[in-house]
């Protein structure tokens, strides 16, 4: 379990980091919870690793003007325990608490996790349901991409060569809104066989807004748009949840067939929506 030899840089500023990744085969190291296991198994053998840990000021969580900004190297533990996240984006705090285990949450970062884009990762469902934006910077560019355009396929994102994830921008949740992240964790790995993030806003007895993100079922996380529309036009949770897997291809592996994953997505969507509904006021 010894990785192939590589060159290592630990830049002391963002500018230096962006210059380093501008050319050649560079791999960015943040918490290393995905990259290092891959390197140990030699599934990844980057020539040059650029460690972001010494870049100051990338681990902030701030709120202003209805947006929570989360720096790329904020850890899952920081997100899970941050009063700002728990108060203003509680769905994301709930999702962060489901990731890996204590040690993994202490090291793993939101920027690293989303850049890796494991199809069974927890964050994508919540980031889609929250309509988050992801800010990508390079030595020459600075752009912001909606989460729905960021996760393209398994381990594939909108990040271009030379770019890195600078921050995640999350519109704040209203205090009266209901939310829930529900997950079927793989018993060995803890990854999501299926994970569903749900948000509900009510106007009187009616649902005025529904957002549903699903991870683990397909090669990329997706929004269950049909189910959202049904809920917003008066349908019940059971009727809406029954549609979440429609029109989506599903992964299969030794643990779960494609049909079983679709089934889990429907059941867990119903559970997540029921809790979200009960929390909405």
């Amino acid at each position: 379990m010894i990785p192939q030899d590589f060159e290592y840089s630990a830049p002391a500023s963002l500018k230096e980091a962006l210059e380093l990744i501008a050319t050649g085969e560079r791999k960015i190291l943040a918490g290393g919870m995905s990259l290092i296991p891959l390197m140990k198994l030699r599934l990844a053998a980057p020539e040059h690793v650029v460690d972001l840990a010494r870049v100051p000021g990338l681990d902030y969580i701030t709120e202003s003007g209805g947006t929570v900004s989360i720096g790329a190297t904020v850890t899952h533990h920081d997100l899970e325990s941050s009063p700002v996240i728990r108060g203003r984006a509680p769905l994301l705090a709930e999702a962060a608490g489901h990731i890996g285990d204590t040690q993994v949450r202490n090291m793993g970062t939101i920027g690293g996790s989303i850049a890796h884009a494991d199809p069974a990762a927890d964050y994508p469902a919540s980031l889609l349901a929250l309509e988050a934006q992801i800010r990508l910077v390079s030595a020459k560019s600075d752009r912001t991409v909606p989460a729905s355009d960021f996760f393209l396929d398994a381990f594939t994102t909108a990040i271009e060569p030379g770019e890195l994830v600078l921050e995640v921008l999350v519109p704040t949740e209203e205090p009266k809104e209901g939310y829930r992240y529900e997950k079927v964790a793989h018993p060995a790995s803890g990854f999501a066989v299926v994970g569903v993030a749900a948000r509900i806003k009510k106007a009187g007895a009616k649902i005025s807004m529904a957002r549903i993100g699903v991870t683990g079922m397909s090669s990329r996380a997706f929004r269950a748009l049909e189910a959202e529309k049904l809920l917003e036009s008066g349908a019940g949770v059971a009727q809406a949840a029954a549609t979440v897997a429609e029109g989506q291809e599903a992964n299969q592996d030794l643990y779960a067939s494609a049909d079983y994953r679709r089934h889990l997505a429907r059941i867990w969507a119903a559970r997540a929506l029921s809790v979200a509904l009960s929390r909405a006021s």
Binding site: M1, Y8, I36, H77, T102, N106, M107
Partner: peptide
């Protein structure tokens, strides 16, 4: 423990 937080030392490089 790394700066007071539990971490798995098999999944971290010494340079970190």
């Amino acid at each position: 423990m790394l700066d007071g937080k539990a971490v798995k030392s098999c999944t971290m490089f010494a340079v970190q």
